[in-house]
Design a protein around this nucleic acid. Structure first.
Length: 790
DNA sequence: ATTAGCATCCTTTTT
DNA sequence: GGATGCTAAT
């Protein structure tokens, strides 16, 4: 541990900003000066301490799972403040999510008191980017009150652009273009910087053209999308050295959380502000990089020392979360990755239980087994809050939910559609946005005919044409048009009524509390009524959400403040739940969380690792999947339970599956095979053990299931997989074209046997998909390779 | 303007 | 299997 950066134990606090900086009298700062080492430092181990105290120059903290990453980050901030090296306003601290930002702020406050309260530059990349951009909006062609579009608005805008170019948006969907543009923005590319080849990927080379048109539209609307919050800054900084200079001087210390998740644009942004040798501290874990598919560049973290010459790299390898067995399993697994900086996690804790692996017949049995185990743990006094099921794909959740409902087991789904993404919230917001800013065309368009006012496409068309010709916002165009005969009387009246409503609401907004205003608006617009009339099952929930929205508005003192906040923040926090619940979520959303017991179902080839990941990105994709497995395992403090099913229904088709290769990558000594006595005789679970551990053969090759034996029998050499069965070939790390059996192996009328459904007769064949009328199970669609002639 | 029927998609998710 | 989104029909 270095101590050169420590404040001199009893000497005066460093000069300059320190003098201006004061904590509460007699607070921690005072004690820090008095004591040899401040209390907050004493709580750290030596590596953590070094990470906190290495304040000068670039530092990369490689923080393995459960090694106290957040503690380092927050203590570092506290340390900077307490030693008077910088004031709160001189520290830039960026995170990816608002949740992480909030948590960081709370913890700093806990460490050194409310002095941290006013950290204006602690936030997400986007919120800070937005803040900077707003201050200098004119320099990049925007007005300071620009609106931030979300994905939905973005797509509607792109649809218009595609339609305007007379392109079939069926063949070239706006979603796809949005994804492309997003991708470019993630890499920090403006339309004129997109590599020539890239543009051809959309609509025969018009992608870049549309990108440019989209940016132009945004500028006219005085709007930006999420990506612009960053690349807008890039442009601002590059074109205005003086502005960049302001921030370079201001941010004496910079901290970045989850550095492995940064994309190129974020890297460039940071690099511009920090320079080559700024006091930047990036904390991350290359082994937990799981967002490559949305633009994160693992390379950023792998190349850190190269990008910031002379950077100090500190590894945090002491794990405080998991038992030795869990840690061993995770470490052994992740060691199979090639692209990594390499860390060896260790713990001083107990061995604990081994990681349990269980083979089950199908998804239903998997859910049953997990449910049973949860109930058993519950009976032993374990809290449901300390158990989680982490799935690879969200469709896997359904089976668990169904099971838990029949068991009466309380569960909560984490993730899913965010509160503010729900249609009813977005509609309500659109009303408020139009009130706050009449020239917000996208918001106006969204609600002009919601609820139905007879203002359909043709009316809107007229509005659009007029607005465009006159270069005025839609609402303004509407105000003029209602005075004319352009529209049919009914439309004219309806639109006029709406405009009058808005005028009235706008008038009221000046003196009414905005919560109350929102209520009035939702009521008088007929929006509430619209949902009351709706008889679908989710209508009551939507009304509930609207109430929640009104309630949450009361926390803000101005409508504008609320709108700004909500476009960037608003999480779907479910506050005040009293009951204990099991958590159900995807592996991705589990990052950063921890539980005593973690269930990891669905470890099957094709599902996990996911076939698409491998097809799209080959070895890199596989490695990211492996990191996901690593993230999953390291969420567990005491118990990790993995399972795989032999049969799984994917897109309404039954497929038999091969256990995940990741199972083979777990160390024997830390894994045990669960004995599952299933309704199917329980043979296979122990066979799994036998083949894997007793005979010490390549696990998959000796895996004994009826389906597997059959596949082997069918193969000419009795060895190669997939050779004769017409089934998908070995799922490999490299992209592999799926074998399609050209000839149907069965014809209608034939009698067949299926492992799961028993005997039946072929009704129809569609490629390799067979419709079979089973004697016991009824009519099912199955893949031909799971059928046997009988 | 509303709605039924049809095709198509189906990994992960934040801002 | 199911959700979603568009077309065509009323």
């Amino acid at each position: 541990m270095t101590s050169k950066n420590l404040p001199k134990p009893s000497g005066p606090v460093p000069a300059s900003p320190a003098g201006e900086y004061e904590l509460r009298p007699g607070g921690i700062a005072a004690r820090a000066r008095a004591a040899a080492a401040p209390a907050y430092l004493a709580a750290l181990n030596s590596e953590q301490g070094e990470a906190v105290e290495s304040l000068d120059g670039p530092v990369l903290v490689l923080a393995g799972a459960g090694t106290g990453k957040t503690r380092v980050l927050t203590t570092r901030i506290a340390h900077i403040l307490a030693t008077g090296r910088a004031r709160a306003g001189e520290i830039l601290a960026v995170t990816f999510t608002n949740k992480a930002a909030r948590e960081m702020k709370d913890r700093v406050i806990k460490l050194i008191g409310p002095a941290a309260e006013g950290m204006p530059w602690l936030g997400t990349f986007h919120s800070i980017g937005g803040k900077i951009l707003r201050r200098h909006a004119e320099l990049v062609g925007l007005k300071p009150d620009f609106t931030i579009l979300d994905t939905d608005d973005q797509i509607r805008l792109l649809k218009q652009i595609i339609a305007a170019a007379n392109i079939d948006d069926k063949r070239w969907p706006a979603r796809q273009l949005a994804a492309r543009i997003d991708h470019w923005k993630n890499r920090g590319l403006m339309p004129d910087q997109v590599p020539a080849g890239d543009g051809f990927a959309f609509a025969d080379g018009r992608g870049v053209e549309f990108y440019a048109a989209y940016q132009e539209r945004l500028r006219i609307l005085n709007a930006v999308d999420f990506g612009d919050l960053l690349i807008g800054c890039l442009r601002l900084f590059r074109e205005n050295a003086d502005v960049l200079d302001i921030y370079r001087k201001r941010f004496r210390y910079m901290l970045v959380d989850e550095y492995q998740d940064t994309n190129v644009a974020q890297y460039l942004w940071l690099r511009l502000i920090a320079g080559k040798d700024g006091n930047v501290c990036c904390v991350g874990d290359d082994d937990q990089s799981i967002y490559g598919w949305r633009g994160a560049e693992v390379d950023n973290i792998l190349r850190f020392e190269h990008d910031f010459p002379g950077a100090k790299v500190i590894r945090l390898e002491r794990n405080y979360r998991s038992t030795a067995h869990i840690l061993a399993a995770a470490s052994h697994l992740i060691a199979h990755n090639e692209s990594r900086l390499g860390k060896t996690l260790h713990t001083e804790g107990e061995d604990g239980e081994k990681v349990q692996v269980r083979g089950v017949w199908d998804g239903a049995e998997e859910a049953r087994a997990v449910g049973e185990e949860i109930e058993q743990l519950q009976r032993q006094g374990h809290s449901l809050d300390e158990m989680a099921i982490l799935v690879r794909a969200s469709f896997q959740m359904r089976e668990f939910e169904e099971r838990f409902i029949t068991l009466g087991l309380d569960y909560r789904v984490i993730g899913g559609p965010r509160f503010y993404e729900r249609a009813e919230i977005r509609d309500a917001m659109a009303y408020l946005k139009v009130i706050a800013n009449p020239s917000n065309d996208l918001a106006f368009e969204r609600i002009v005919n919601t609820p139905r006012r007879g203002l359909g496409e043709s009316s809107l068309q007229v509005l659009h044409e007029f607005a465009r010709a006159e270069h005025i916002p839609l609402a303004e165009a509407a105000a003029i048009l209602v005075e004319t005969e352009e529209l049919k009387p009914r439309q004219r009246q309806s639109l006029g009524g709406l405009l009058d409503d808005f005028a009235r609401w706008r008038e009221q907004s000046a003196h009414l509390p905005h919560g109350e205003l929102a209520e009035i608006v939702l009521d008088e617009s007929g929006y509430t009524q619209m949902w009351l009339n709706e008889k679908s099952a989710d209508a009551p929930g939507r009304l509930e959400n609207l109430k929640e929205l009104v309630r949450s508005m009361e926390d803000f003192d101005s409508l504008a403040g609320f709108l700004e906040h909500i476009s960037l923040v608003m999480d779907n926090e479910r506050g005040g739940e009293g009951t204990e619940r099991v958590s159900l979520m995807t592996l991705h959303s589990a990052k950063g969380l921890e539980f005593d017991t973690v269930f990891l179902p669905g470890w099957e080839e094709g599902l996990f690792p996911h076939q698409r990941a491998i097809d799209d990105a080959g070895r890199a994709g596989l490695e990211e999947e492996r990191r996901l497995a690593y993230v999953g395992l390291t969420r567990a403090r005491k118990r990790a339970r993995i399972s795989f099913a032999q049969n799984r229904r994917i897109h309404a088709l039954w497929q038999s599956s091969i256990p995940s290769r990741f199972l083979d990558e777990l160390p024997d000594g830390s894994v045990e095979i669960a004995d599952s006595d299933t309704s199917f005789g329980g043979g296979m679970a122990s066979n799994y053990g036998a083949s894997r551990f007793d005979r010490d053969q390549a696990f998959a090759a000796s895996y004994e299931t009826p389906g597997w034996r059959r596949a082997q029998r069918n193969a000419p050499g009795g060895q190669r997989r997939g050779a004769g069965g017409g089934r998908a070939p070995v799922i490999d790390a490299e992209p592999v074209a799926r074998e399609v059996s050209s000839t149907a192996r069965f014809s209608p009328g034939e009698r067949v046997f299926h492992q799961k459904f028993g005997y039946g007769r072929i009704l129809a064949a569609d490629g390799n998909k067979m419709t079979v009328d089973f004697e016991k199970a009824g009519r099912k669609r199955v893949i031909d390779s799971f059928l046997e002639r009988h």
